[in-house]
């Protein structure tokens, strides 16, 4: 198993390098530093200003190969910055990106962790509930509601939620942020509710399929023949057996706990990494965007390896080799 994890880590590292290469192609070769400079300071900026901008941001090195000093090129610098988690400075306002990440991670986690837990609890419970009543009108109604819910764009949930809860009912603040924990809860309530609403359709339907597939298995019949009730069958037998698809679903969500939700954060004024991404889009801040993609895939790759390890805990039949 240790050998397996090591091999996965090596392959994961290779994937990270692939991501960095892709980003280099996209942001240095396809969109050249000059393009980036033009977008940052304006199309009609004088050539001197563009030269200046490029030099200030360290984009004035040779792209791939520097005959005088092989370690001094944009390619090497790109890989060095990312792999040492230095990340450099924002293209928009010269703030070190590391500092931004450190500031934004907290609010993102504060939003995403409760959202993630609620979402999981709601969708697994509802999925189990609907699957318990499979083949009945409860099940059909449940599936119809899910398809209905997932056909609504997340934007409408946000707009509708803000309008209804914030403006008409006046239950929670519409948006905003405060550092003190007691106030945060009031600010987080609405985005969490909206987030759960926006995702439950797809999630419940997914879990229902998993659970219905599982309830058709022979061991479920055995459990009933022993005298287990519906609830016990679902929670004690079906749920543990469905852990592999659940884990797969859960672990790939983990990177987003850190990178945050782009839509929810910017809409509700939460100063997390999602808002930071939106700022980067609006400010043509390519450096920050590159870092966000890199962090996202790094976390995703680590989460995938963690999933494989967790599989062995969820199912004694799984052996990693």
């Amino acid at each position: 198993m240790i050998a397996y994890v090591l091999r996965r880590l090596v392959y994961g590292f290779a994937t990270v390098l692939g991501v960095l290469l892709f980003l280099f192609f996209l942001f240095f070769l396809y969109a050249s530093p000059e393009d980036i400079a033009r977008r940052a300071i304006g199309e009609k900026a004088p050539p001197a200003a563009i030269e200046q901008w490029i030099a200030n941001h360290g984009y004035d090195r040779p792209l791939v190969w520097n005959p005088e000093d092989p370690t001094d090129s944009l390619l090497v610098e790109h890989f060095r910055r990312m792999l040492t988690f230095d990340f450099g400075r924002s293209d928009a306002d010269d703030v070190p990106i590391r500092q931004r990440l450190a500031e934004g991670a907290g609010p993102s986690l504060a939003l995403m962790v409760p959202l993630f837990l609620f979402e999981l609890l709601v969708s697994v419970t509802l999925g189990l509930f609907v699957a318990t009543f499979r083949e009945t009108y409860i099940d059909r109604a449940g599936v119809a509601i899910c398809v209905f819910a997932m056909s609504v764009s997340i934007l409408l949930y946000i707009i509708g939620g803000q309008y209804l809860v914030g403006r008409v009912l006046n239950w929670f603040p519409v948006s905003g942020w405060d550092a003190s924990p007691s106030v945060i809860a009031r600010f987080l309530a609405l985005p969490v509710i909206v987030g759960v609403l926006a995702s439950f359709g797809e999630q419940v339907r997914f879990y229902r399929t998993v659970f219905v597939e599982e309830t058709a298995r022979d061991y479920v019949r055995t459990a009933r023949a022993k005298g287990c009730g519906d609830a016990r069958v679902m929670w004690r037998h079906v749920l543990p057996n469905a852990m592999i698809p659940i884990l797969t679903q859960v672990v790939v969500a983990i990177p987003f706990l850190f990178t945050g939700s782009i839509l929810l954060e910017s809409f509700f004024g939460i100063p997390g990494l999602g808002s930071m991404t939106v700022d980067a889009i609006q400010g043509n801040d390519f450096a920050t965007l590159r870092v966000m993609v890199f962090i996202g895939s790094l976390l995703f790759i680590l989460a995938q390896i963690a999933t494989d390890v967790l599989y062995t805990l969820a199912d004694p039949r799984v052996r990693l080799e």
Partner: peptide
């Protein structure tokens, strides 16, 4: 490699 990058990002 492509799948490891978060889709929206």
């Amino acid at each position: 490699t492509l799948a490891s990058m978060p889709t929206l990002l």
